[in-house]
């Protein structure tokens, strides 16, 4: 078990490093001058500075070094939790993200929880009902939910619940009421993805001979569905749990922009627009870290749900 854990954490570190490096490479290959962007953000004309002053500034931000040296500095910094200073705002990136990560975390976690419950319930009901028209409708519903663009869902919710009914505020990040529509927007997509996988898995599980055995015992359909089918059907769906959580993180970019919420998502969107390299690098690294950790947790949970899987080494018997 310990051996397995060490291996998996090693893998996670490699994935994180690869995400960081790839993002760095892409950002630094963009045809723009970081210093120019920074001066523009500060409202200083580049022409008003002497070449000497420019060179001093370059040296101050470490931009006069080779790409490899810069990469190394960034990597070492990131390992110490220091992602440098935002080019557009002149504030340490860590502070910038630290102030905004709370609301985004709240949004993502709430959305993931709602999606998990809604997706599971939908899949459960869709495979349980016997009245065919309802069954067909419920089975097709996730495909519909997964095909609406998120900004469209967001605008629809704003139009209906804010402008017409006035139940929830259309924008802002104050109070629980402001959280409802952003969470719904993300959950529609995330729960649809989950329900699609879970319904297919349920259908397959219900065709298994042990379900027949369970029904032949005289168990009710509810008991068979709950005690025999659900856990087995959930196993393949576990794999996409990491994807679902990742989805809620990336969705935050769209949702926070549409609902003008202060958060890491909106920060990421603004930083990409202003080519604020350190901030983007930090956001991508954090998102990758979340993804890696969730997947690690899922893999560690597997043996608890499926007794056939064990992370301890087995003696090979052919």
């Amino acid at each position: 078990m310990a051996r397995y854990l060490v291996g998996r954490i090693g893998q996670a570190v490699v994935v994180l490093w690869a995400a960081f490096t790839l993002t760095f490479a892409i950002l630094y290959l963009l045809p723009s001058d970081p210093l120019e962007l920074q001066l523009a953000a500060a409202g200083i004309q580049q022409d008003s500075l002497t070449p000497g002053q420019l060179a001093a500034l370059r040296a101050q931000f470490g931009l006069d070094q080779s790409i490899l040296a810069q990469y190394w500095d960034h990597l070492i910094g990131a390992l110490h939790g220091d992602f440098g200073v935002s080019l557009s705002q002149g504030v340490p990136v860590t502070d910038l993200i630290g102030r905004r990560i709370g609301p985004t975390l709240l949004l993502s976690v709430s959305a993931a929880v709602v999606a998990l419950i809604a997706g599971s319930v939908l899949a459960y009901v869709a495979t349980f009902v016997r009245w065919n028209p309802l069954r067909v409708f419920l089975t097709r519903l996730p495909a519909l939910g997964a095909s609406f663009p998120q900004f469209f869902v967001a605008l629809f919710l704003i139009q209906f619940f804010s402008f017409q009914l006035g139940w929830f505020p259309a924008t802002g990040s104050e109070g629980a009421a402001s959280l409802v529509m952003p969470v719904l927007t993300i959950a529609v997509l995330a729960s649809s993805v989950l329900a699609q996988v879970l319904i297919k898995s349920f259908d397959e599980t219900l065709r298994q001979p042990y379900v027949m055995t369970a029904r032949a015992k005289g168990l009710s359909r509810t008991a068979v569905h709950l005690k025999h089918a659900f856990r087995n059907a959930a196993l393949p769906a576990m794999t996409i749990l990491g994807v679902i959580v990742g989805l809620t993180v990336t969705s935050a970019i769209v949702v926070e922009t549409v609902f003008t919420r202060e958060g890491v998502g909106k920060l990421a969107q603004e930083s990409v627009l202003s080519q604020d390299v350190p901030v983007v690098l930090a956001v991508v690294t954090i998102a990758a870290a979340v993804f890696v950790v969730v997947n690690l947790i899922v893999d560690l949970l597997y043996p608890l749900l499926d007794p056939r899987i064990s992370h301890t080494r087995e003696v090979v018997v052919v």
Partner: peptide, 15 residues
Amino acid sequence: GFIPQDPMVGLNPTR
């Protein structure tokens, strides 16, 4: 009572 065909898949693997 019913005894199914293939014992390898006749029991719920998770219970």
